[in-house]
């Protein structure tokens, strides 16, 4: 497995800034309550693992077996920690 255990905390960033091709784990949702609930129900809940497939204005993500397209305005409220790939 590529996920080596790091001693230092993993870098955190909004999903919009996760590099394309990298995988991150959701740490927190920081938007309005209604948006957060909607994101959670679509599967973007805390500790979900997301792979960013492509990302411009509209992001394409792989989330436990499904492809989900979401606007950057929604993605910026998803805080992820980088766990694999990128950089």
């Amino acid at each position: 497995m590529m996920t080596a255990e790091f001693r230092q905390p993993r870098p955190r960033m909004p999903l919009t800034e996760l590099p394309v091709g990298a995988t991150g784990r959701v740490c927190a949702l920081d938007g309005e309550a209604a948006l957060c609930q909607r994101l959670r129900e679509m599967g973007f809940c805390e500790s979900a693992v997301i792979e960013k497939v492509s990302g411009e204005r509209t992001l394409l993500c792989q989330l436990c077996g499904t492809r989900i397209a979401l606007s950057d305005r929604a993605a910026q409220h998803i805080v992820v920690e980088l766990i694999r790939g990128g950089v």
């Binding site: 679509m42 492809r67 989900i68 397209a69 606007s71």
Partner: peptide, 11 residues
């Protein structure tokens, strides 16, 4: 508000 899209792409 500017639009927000969250949409599943079926296989």
């Amino acid at each position: 508000e500017p639009p927000l899209m969250i949409m599943e792409l079926p296989p």
